[in-house]
């Protein structure tokens, strides 16, 4: 997690909104937990802080494009979309 606030309500909303545009399934793994990356409530319960390591799992017909977009979103600290 590069952005300082971690997966706060705002970045969670941005992430989920972007992820939902793809057909592929999207999961986030953190410390042995797995949540549906298209579920804002799931993402928020991770309470991932700055510096936390998360693993992104994308699976489906548009997985390559989805992964590219989502990684970019994490790298840009959730500022680019909207």
């Amino acid at each position: 997690m590069l952005n300082e606030e971690g997966l706060h309500a705002r970045p969670s909303a941005t992430l989920v909104k972007e992820a939902s545009k793809f057909d592929s399934d999207f999961y986030i793994d953190m410390r042995g937990y797995r949540v549906n990356g298209k579920s804002i409530l799931g993402v928020m319960t991770l309470a991932a802080e700055h510096g936390a390591e998360v693993e992104l799992i994308v699976d489906g017909s548009d997985e390559n494009e989805a992964m590219k977009t989502l990684v970019k979103l994490f790298e840009s600290r959730f500022e680019m979309a909207q």
Partner: peptide, 14 residues
């Protein structure tokens, strides 16, 4: 932004 988060909650598949 707060409303956006609420909208995403209402749409939450889980």
């Amino acid at each position: 932004e707060i409303l956006e988060a609420q909208i995403q909650i209402v749409r939450d598949p889980e």
